[in-house]
């Protein structure tokens, strides 16, 4: 099993997501992330799916995706040129002013942003590619991560 990144343009209707996720789950593939949103055409949604899969079986899944009536196009971005972004919010323990200041310094050095400060925690926002997100999480880990939420990857193929 390895990671693949698939993008699908689909009709913006109810039930489409269930059809698509069903094709993966029926084969025992775990979707590690899935991001869905409207495109430039409000009748079309774009899904970006990151999935752990077996390559040969994934080939079949891609064909099955294409076969779904409400799927317009399927792209396999894996191994090609593309830009990808993900947004993450990390809530970090910050019980004292001291620690809060340290976290602010760390965050400033990365270009991430502090979006909420509470009595016992601060929440940090970062967006970027996988590398950038991972780096921030590792920097914050020593302070004690309370909660993480991620949007899942979105990606567009490069024209180059």
């Amino acid at each position: 099993m390895s990671k693949f990144i698939i993008a699908a343009l689909v009709e913006n209707k109810f039930g489409v997501l269930a059809r698509i996720s069903g094709l993966f789950s029926a084969r025992g593939f775990n979707i590690s992330s899935l991001a869905v949103g409207e495109t430039e055409d409000p009748e079309v949604s774009r899904m970006t799916i990151v999935v752990d899969a077996d390559e040969k079986i994934l080939e079949q899944v891609k064909k099955q995706l294409n076969k779904l009536i409400e799927v317009i196009t399927v792209y396999d971005l894996t191994g090609g040129e593309y830009v990808d972004r993900e947004l993450i919010l990390v809530k970090v323990k910050a019980a004292s002013t001291d620690i809060r200041e340290k976290i602010v310094q760390v965050v400033d050095s990365t270009g991430a942003e502090i979006v909420d400060i509470g009595k016992k925690s601060v929440t940090v926002e970062e967006s970027g590619d996988e590398h950038r997100i991972k780096a921030l999480v590792e920097l914050l880990r020593p302070y004690g991560i309370l909660e993480i939420v991620r949007t899942g990857k979105i990606a567009l193929q490069s024209d180059a």
Partner: peptide
């Protein structure tokens, strides 16, 4: 007629 049948 079904591309998903071919090479399956």
């Amino acid at each position: 007629v079904d591309p998903s049948s071919v090479g399956k």
